[in-house]
Amino acid sequence: KITVTFNGEEKARRYYKKMQKHNLKVEIRVENNQWVVHVE
């Protein structure tokens, strides 16, 4: 499981979509004013 933190929504969403293309289970959320993407 990987957790990647971004300081911008745009970058986070781009990464999220990229990971989805690989058929990975991805989850995006905001934690402590940071955009966090969890990849299983």
Rank of each mutant, 00 (worst) to 15 (best):
Y15I: 02
K1T: 13
K21R: 12
T5S: 09
N23M: 06
T5K: 13
W35L: 03
V4M: 11
N23W: 09
V4K: 10
N33E: 09
K18C: 15
V39A: 03
R13K: 11
V37S: 00
W35M: 02
K17F: 06
M19Y: 04
Q34G: 05
N23G: 15
Y16A: 15
V30S: 07
V4S: 03
K18P: 01
Y16K: 06
M19L: 08
K1N: 11
N23V: 04
K1A: 12
A12R: 02
R13D: 04
L24I: 11
T3E: 07
E31N: 05
N7Q: 10
R13C: 13
K11Y: 12
K18R: 10
N7L: 10
N33T: 04
K18Q: 14
E40H: 09
E40R: 08
N7G: 09
R13T: 05
E27Y: 07
N32Q: 06
E27K: 06
K1H: 14
Y16L: 11
Y15G: 02
Y15T: 02
N7S: 13
N7H: 09
I28V: 03
W35F: 04
K25W: 07
F6I: 03
R13M: 11
E10S: 09
G8N: 15
V36P: 00
G8Y: 12
E27D: 07
Y16D: 02
G8R: 12
H22W: 06
T3V: 11
K11N: 13
R29M: 11
N23K: 09
T5C: 15
T5Y: 13
T3C: 14
K1Q: 11
T3A: 06
Q34N: 08
T3K: 10
Q20R: 11
R29N: 07
V37Q: 00
L24M: 10
V39C: 07
R13P: 04
Q34D: 03
N33H: 07
M19A: 06
I2M: 10
T3P: 02
R14V: 08
K11S: 15
E10T: 09
K18Y: 15
W35R: 00
T3Q: 06
K11D: 15
Q34A: 07
E40Q: 13
V30L: 14
I2S: 06
E27R: 05
N32G: 14
V37Y: 00
E10W: 09
A12C: 08
N33I: 04
T3G: 03
A12V: 03
L24N: 06
T3R: 10
W35P: 00
N32S: 05
E40G: 10
E40W: 15
A12G: 02
R29P: 00
E10R: 09
N7M: 09
A12F: 07
T5L: 09
V39T: 03
N7T: 11
V26M: 03
V39R: 01
V39P: 00
